[in-house]
């Protein structure tokens, strides 16, 4: 951001150059304006009944299938993000669409194509919201299925109406750059901490449904963990003391989210990557995928009951 705009009168400041979209770049924004915006986001979260709601599958079969299907979906979304050069926040936004859709509509067991089609529609919609350059629908390659553009468009419409056109969802990425300098006194010159926090958020999102925790809580917990993985309840409260009262954040939730993030990291570090990164329908693979529920879910401890 232009240094001269830093002390600007409050107004809606937006940037349109591409450099601002690099997530590893730390931006400092006009303080009061940004604070107000962050506060309004947190207020929005607390009024929303999107978070912490219970998923509706109650038989084990469906739950297991959906759990695996979601993990495959996340892997497809993340690798397609890389191929198409989207930002991380776009992939995460896509995942929030996916999770919200799944919480409102039922997908029958084994309807693998429906999950894939849903992923494509969600990623395309997220790109339309977040990216400056949006590829045409033919660039989204599903494994084993070839969806025509008109089919994807129909699915886009279905997602839009199911989510009641509320496409500007809050994600942890809305907060990251705001929280980091408030928690870490030293400047993150090379963007190391931001990258680390982003990694944590992405790993977390593979295991945990995006509707389970408030995005602000995930953002602050991942920033805390990126800065220090040895925080106790007390030291953490000390670190976020000012912040949490300013934004009325719930310390309890931040603490449990911090521990959950840490647990996921520990598990990840102890798991051979060949298993943990298994993806069944990666976009680059050409083998038609067969779902095998029994073996295909390496990450067992999923906090949300899918």
């Amino acid at each position: 951001m232009d240094p001269d705009t830093r002390f600007s009168l409050p107004s809606l400041l937006c940037e349109e150059d591409e450099s601002s979209l690099q997530e590893t770049k730390l931006v400092s924004s006009p303080k009061s304006e940004d604070d107000l915006y962050i506060r309004s986001l947190i207020e929005t979260e607390s009024k929303s009944n999107d978070y912490g709601c219970v998923c509706v599958c109650d038989d084990d079969n469906s739950r297991n299938w959906l759990k695996c299907a979601r993990l495959d979906a996340v892997n497809w979304i993340f690798s397609t993000r890389e191929i198409l050069g989207f930002q991380f926040r776009t992939a995460y936004l896509c995942l929030t669409y996916f999770d919200r859709f799944i919480s409102r509509r039922f997908i029958d067991n084994g309807k693998d194509w429906a999950i894939q089609l849903l992923c494509i529609a969600c990623l395309s919609l997220a790109a339309k919201m977040e990216e400056l350059m949006v590829p045409s629908l033919s660039h989204y390659k599903a494994q084993g299925y070839n969806f025509e553009s008109s089919v994807i468009q129909r699915m886009e419409l279905m997602v839009l109406t199911t989510l009641e056109w509320k496409m500007s969802c809050i994600t942890p990425f809305s907060y990251l750059h705001h929280f980091l300098p408030k928690i870490n006194d030293e400047r993150d010159y090379d963007g190391f901490l931001v990258s680390k926090a982003i990694d944590l958020i992405l790993d977390f999102s593979k295991d945990v449904n995006s509707m389970d925790h408030r995005p602000s809580v995930v953002a602050i917990a991942s920033v805390l963990l990126a800065c220090d993985d040895q925080l106790t309840r007390n030291t953490m409260e000390f670190k976020i003391g000012v912040l949490s009262s300013f934004y009325s954040l719930e310390k309890e939730h931040i603490h449990s989210c911090y521990n959950l993030l840490k647990e996921i990291q520990t598990k990840k570090n102890n798991t051979p990557c060949s298993i943990s990164l298994t993806t069944h329908w990666s976009p680059s693979s050409t083998v038609k995928r067969k779902l095998r529920f029994e073996q295909s879910c390496p990450l067992q401890k999923i906090s949300r009951r899918l």
């Binding site: 194509w113 089609l117 699915m155």
Partner: peptide, 29 residues
Amino acid sequence: YNLASQAINPANIPMQRGVAAQPHQQQQQ
């Protein structure tokens, strides 16, 4: 808005009606 969301069949593939749409869920929804 609700009406509009009912009618899409993305792949024009015959789709089954929901097995798991229990009454209480509908109500919740």
